[in-house]
Amino acid sequence: MKKLLIVLFFSTATFAQDITPKQVLEKYFEAIGGRTNMDKVKDFYAVSTTEVMGQSMENIESKKIPNMYSSVVDQSGVELAKIVFDGKQAKVSQMGNSQFLDESASKALLAQALIFPETLYFSDEITLTLSGSEQHENEDCYVISVAGIPGITTMKEYYSVNSGLKLKQQVEGPSGSANVLYKEYKDFGPGVKFATHLVQETMGMTIDKKLTSIKLNSQIADSEFKID
């Protein structure tokens, strides 16, 4: 029995070392449709419903390459919050009050503004480390540590060994920590998959987000991201 346990431990340790972080990411890109199809996506429009502490809200997100982003959250037709990022500067509006974010805070929106945020991990400013392997919901996962993303202290991401899909993200930032679970990947547009059910656990709360509509390449105008 001891010999068997040693063999199993050795196998688990070595399989995690036989692949690099970038190879894990490339496997993920292939799992969601491949780089060629990803490159065909020029803009992204999504409508989702979010449940927070029993309250239901609607979120409309728009993204356009290279890094423009907007997000509107409303409840029963009343706008609760809005973020507009033109790629350089961001403006946040909440309950009738608006403010421009400083350069550092605006830069922190960069990863969120990308249609495929994981492509940012290949930049020179980002450091990737394979932290080994762990199980998530009984599924073996490669665990990648990501350092250097603006606004985030540390981040770990879990990618399925079998499917290649991202299943979990652990984030530590100045305002606290959060876990995000990625579920129910579905095909959209030019052969590309997106997770349509996200569960975020933070500050003792569970935020359940379900995407009800995703449109790709709907020719979103640049004016949608204009900051007044």
Rank of each mutant, 00 (worst) to 15 (best):
Q200Y: 01
Q200S: 15
A90C: 07
T127A: 11
S62Q: 12
T36W: 04
G164H: 10
M95Y: 06
D140N: 15
S106F: 02
Q135Y: 12
E103H: 03
L128M: 05
Y142D: 06
Q17T: 09
L110W: 06
L211T: 15
A46N: 02
T50E: 09
Q94D: 00
L4P: 01
D102V: 09
F9N: 13
G54M: 12
L130W: 00
E157D: 11
K166V: 15
G176A: 07
K82C: 00
L110Y: 12
Q170K: 14
S133D: 04
T12Q: 10
E103C: 00
L4T: 10
T49S: 06
D102T: 13
S177M: 14
E172C: 06
L216F: 12
Y142P: 02
Q89Y: 00
K22W: 00
S104L: 05
G132I: 05
M1L: 04
L5T: 09
E201N: 09
Y121R: 02
V143L: 07
M1T: 11
Y159C: 01
K42R: 13
K226W: 01
L25H: 05
E58K: 14
Q17M: 13
K193I: 11
E137Y: 10
I19D: 01
E157K: 11
V180E: 08
N59D: 10
K64Y: 03
G164K: 10
V52R: 11
Y182S: 08
S123N: 15
A16N: 08
C141T: 04
E201Y: 08
K168Q: 12
G54N: 12
V192H: 05
I214V: 12
D208M: 08
M205D: 12
V41H: 06
A113R: 01
A81T: 09
Q55A: 12
Y142W: 09
G96P: 00
E26K: 14
V199G: 03
I115A: 08
E61H: 06
V192Y: 09
G173N: 11
T127H: 11
I32G: 04
P190Q: 07
Y182E: 05
I19M: 07
Q94L: 00
L101A: 03
T49N: 08
I152N: 05
K82H: 06
S11P: 01
Y182W: 07
V171D: 05
M95W: 03
G54S: 09
A195T: 10
H197K: 14
K63M: 11
E172N: 12
N59I: 15
M57D: 02
H197F: 07
E134N: 08
P66K: 05
G34W: 05
S175G: 08
D18P: 01
T20K: 04
K210H: 04
E118T: 15
Q200W: 00
D222W: 05
E224R: 02
K107F: 06
K63W: 04
T20E: 06
S175I: 15
L198A: 04
K193T: 08
I214R: 13
T153G: 08
N138R: 13
P66L: 02
L109I: 07
V171A: 10
K88C: 00
S123Q: 15
T202R: 13
T50P: 03
T196V: 07
V52M: 14
